[in-house]
Design a protein around this nucleic acid. Structure first.
Ligand SMILES: NC(=O)c1ccc[n+]([C@@H]2O[C@H](COP(=O)([O-])OP(=O)(O)OC[C@H]3O[C@@H](n4cnc5c(N)ncnc54)[C@H](O)[C@@H]3O)[C@@H](O)[C@H]2O)c1
Ligand SMILES: NC(=O)c1ccc[n+]([C@@H]2O[C@H](COP(=O)([O-])OP(=O)(O)OC[C@H]3O[C@@H](n4cnc5c(N)ncnc54)[C@H](O)[C@@H]3O)[C@@H](O)[C@H]2O)c1
Lengths: 216, 216
DNA sequence: ACAGTATTGTTATTGTATTAACAATAATAT
DNA sequence: ATATTATTGTTAATACAATAACAATACTGT
């Protein structure tokens, strides 16, 4: 999928990703008491060009005013209408080790419409314990709990050698999206969203650029 | 920068990023005792098309054989020659909280040519302590230590409200690349590599796709 | 009143990345 | 021998994204 329809208009997926970033910038400015913002201000915060911002906003049909720029409050609402899942969406963390817990603490409560509804871990000491009021279950109960809690998305942070089997179990249970952080690439059916992130890839890219910059 | 020169050929930066992924797949297969691999096998592991793989390898001038595919060992060497920094490169972790420590544990020792040479944290209890033999310094000493240890890249995991000031300090000290995980966008000069990752953006994208898939 | 300025909104253009198409090749099967 | 198959390597075509260009607008200062 490279484009999606909003108001019967085709919107590039990259625009969608940027909208999320724009909203972040808008919320920061809003907290500072700003009510309006110019395209170049959003651009400066999020490392894109002002033209790109205007073009994206044009695509979603949002208009600014010539002298004041864009109304922050309204724009946040329009973006939220596009991005957010009205009834909220339930998320599970699978593998509550050091990394999983760091993500959990960070993510917990940050987005009201994204609820962490369950934790899965096969460590006996963790099973049955609550973290911030979220219950930790044995992975044997994935199918049952995913259905019962209507969980749509999983954050996968189990050890790399368990990634494939656990991912399969999640998909079989009806999970609709996986954020895979386990350095082991996994495969999912077409109708399941998958994103894989590994900081080592980023680090290697960084190292490569440093090397390149020194050469010239 | 969108293209780089390798052997006087222009290589897209996206190809560079994929080479890092290919190498990961190759190393996995190599460990399993495989000596040769087909383009479609690499492709299946890393979620790209076989054509893309062949095209990328063509760009770096690597040839396979018609019936056996690509020699894994040789290909790893060629990719490493392109990506890796011969003398190795020194990295610092700035902000050793839960997230920083999780990344540290993960990254530590994974890539021989990428060494973690220092930790910076302003917590008095951490300063002066060693983690896996890596010393933790006060952020006041950034300039001194970055120069002394020849540190090129920083992993930024301080609290969001400190990100901008700490990043500035790092750049002033001569850092050449920053991996910013602090949800606060920062600005760096053109000659400094910057990558910003926030799992919430990914999560919102995932939620959006789930929503989209349910609608149709 | 009018020139100057800063901004939006949109179209046109350029540039880049991906995909498709297919010739070339070498092994295998008939 | 000859057809069949599976693969590489490369060029051509397509699709996509970013940038440039600029008209339209509304405010400011003179
Ligand atoms: N992508 C990145 O940048 C990045 C960074 C750090 C860690 N990681 C990866 O994240 C994963 C977790 O790292 P960590 O440092 O937290 O490791 P960890 O060992 O501390 O945590 C793993 C957790 O998974 C649990 N677990 C094991 N098998 C399980 C199963 N079948 N079902 C459910 N839970 C199970 C363990 O009990 C443990 O709590 C690893 O795969 C690691 O490679 C990725
Ligand atoms: N991008 C992501 O997906 C993601 C995930 C988790 C956390 N985070 C971010 O990572 C950062 C760290 O998260 P955490 O959970 O580890 O928080 P934390 O509070 O546990 O860790 C922050 C650490 O930074 C240290 N610190 C504070 N000021 C400093 C300074 N001026 N110089 C050096 N060190 C300093 C603190 O002593 C602490 O050890 C936060 O900005 C958080 O938002 C991002």
């Amino acid at each position: 999928m490279t484009k999606v329809k909003i108001h019967s208009k085709e919107i590039p997926v990259k625009t969608i990703a940027r909208l999320s970033q724009y909203r972040r910038a808008l919320l920061i400015c809003s907290q500072k008491g700003k009510t309006h913002i110019f395209s170049h201000e959003i651009a400066a915060i999020q490392h894109v060009t002002a033209v790109q911002v205007r073009r994206d906003l044009m695509l979603i049909g949002f208009n600014g005013s010539l002298k004041q720029g864009y109304n922050i409050h309204d724009l946040v609402n329009v973006i939220s209408e596009i991005l957010d899942y009205e009834e909220g969406i339930n998320v599970a963390i699978v593998g509550l080790g050091n990394f999983g817990r760091a993500l959990f603490n960070y993510f917990y409560g940050k987005r009201s419409q994204l609820r962490i509804a369950a934790i899965f871990d096969n460590n006996m000491e963790k099973i049955g314990t609550e973290y911030n009021g979220v219950y930790c279950y044995s992975p044997y109960r994935v199918e049952e709990i995913v259905k019962r809690e209507n969980i749509k998305i999983a954050i996968l942070t189990v050890p790399p050698n368990r990634a494939v089997e656990v991912a399969k179990k999640l998909v079989d249970a009806g999970i609709k999206g996986i954020l895979n952080y386990t350095s082991t690439p996994i495969n999912v059916p077409d109708n399941v969203f998958l994103d894989e992130y590994d900081m080592i890839t980023t680090m290697e890219k960084a190292a490569f650029f440093v090397k390149m910059n020194e050469m010239k």
